[in-house]
Structures are given as structure tokens and as C-alpha cells.
Design a protein around this nucleic acid. Sequence first.
DNA 1: TCCCAGGGATGAC
DNA 2: GTCATCCATGGG
Length: 269
Amino acid sequence: MLISASDLDLEATLDSGQVFGFQKITAGTFQGIIAGRSVEIAQIKDQLWVSCKKDIPERAVRQFFDLDRDLKPLYQLLEWEGPLEACQKFKGLRIIQQDPWEALAAFIISSNNNIKRIQKIWKSLSLHFSGSATLFPRPQKIAKGDELLLRRLGLGYRAPFLLKTAKNVSRYPARLDQIHKADYERARDLILRYSGVGPKVADCVLLFGFQKYEAFPVDTWITKVMRKLYFRGRKVSEDKTARFARKRWGPWAGYVQQYLFHTARTFKD
DNA sequence: TCCCAGGGATGAC
DNA sequence: GTCATCCATGGG
């Protein structure tokens, strides 16, 4: 299947630490799961090539890659604001609309961790519970495991957090819908109740799993790059950094964050 | 050996 | 409310 996808940078989008279940098969070709179906995907100029054994609706792919969002307002920000100039290099980077549970689990795993290990843990959980390297287990499956097993699968001290949250989500699945319907502030209060979810993880989950685009996750990279670009080298707390960004960029804060993160992380000399 | 990675839970004040 | 400490693991 070919899908018109102007203004998309597939590589930057899949390789910017938002989503951990996509594997690069060959240069420019990825394998992963979209809407529950295993797909191979590649970009050919302004088109996406999608291969899937089952039928996958085009709209599911468009939604996953947020393809119907007009990024012009974001690009204007990147052009007008001097500190954001370097981010223009990644025009076409889009924020993926992930499954809420998968985003929640992924970013519980992400805390005080690095992207390579997050991918490794994602894979080991998927293989163990689902028998596939990219098909992440539903909460019910993880809830049936125990802490020791999760530790062995690489989670370390995060094992009890993920276990608790998996049990919680499988017992009260409607809470995720409730978070979906809530506005950003209310959704944040709700998501913070899960074990292993603090301010930063909460914002990641809201941004990548619940389309709350005011969310501005502040990790170590963002702390550093914001200090340099906006705070004259001063140290500013994570909480104040996030509030500054939300006030400044409003509904585009999440997108700006992802561009800053990717730019900072891939910055070479 | 220490420092860092998309930090959070816990307890002290 | 803010702050210090501890928590697995692997790479540099």
C-alpha cells in the first residue's frame, strides 16, 4: 500500500525515542506494529510504502504518524525563534499516536534509563509474553507475571512499578478512557497515580499516548538544552522549565520538546 | 573507577 | 512544598 505523506521524516520520527518497538530491517525500512498489525514500512519521497499481511486501513497509518496535522505553525515557530533554529533540520519529525497502555509501560521502563536499553527491555518483554520481538504484551499478560520474572527480563528496580501498573490497568481499563477525555491538567493528575509515573513520565505518556500536546516532558537532555538556549546557562527546576514551555508554546509545546530533544541528542560538535 | 541514561519512591525537614 | 538518597543495568 502507498500512502501520500508529505512533510514526514520517517527515520527521525521512528528514531527519536518516542516509540521503542520499531526495528530497522534495512536502511530506511522498519518493522513494527501499527493498530495491532505487524507492518513493514518505508518512505519513498512523499509517499509511505506499507506492507502488511492483514489488511490495514490507511486511516490507521495516517493517525499513527499524525499525518493530517498541518505543521506550518510549528515551522513558523522554528523560523521565528532564534534558539530553535537548529531544529529546522528535522522538519517532518512527527509525534506518533501510540497505544496508551504501550506508552504508559514504555515510559515507566524509560526512567533513569537509556534508549538502547529501553528498546532491549521492550523486546525481551515482547518476546517473553507475546512471542514476537515487536508485539508488546497487553497489561493482563504482564499482570500475571511476578517481580522476579520482570527483573530477569531486564527491568531492574522498575519491575514492581510496571507490575503494579499492569495490574491496575487491567483491573480498571476505563481509567485510560477517562484520561483520554480529560483536559491536560486533569489527565496529568490521573496518570500520576500510576506506580512508576512521576512528572516527566506523565508528560511523555500524555504526549505520546493521549495526544495532550501541551505536555512538555523535561528529561536530562531537555534540562540541559533549555538551560543553554533559554535560561542563559542558569539552572532551572524541571517543573519551572515545563511551565515556562507550556506558557510559551501552548498547544505546540510537545512538538517543540520533541524537536529540541532530537536535536540535542543527535547534535555532533 | 566514576558518570550518565527520556526519573520515581520514599522519607526528612 | 523542596531536597537527599537509593534504586538495576550497561556503555563510555
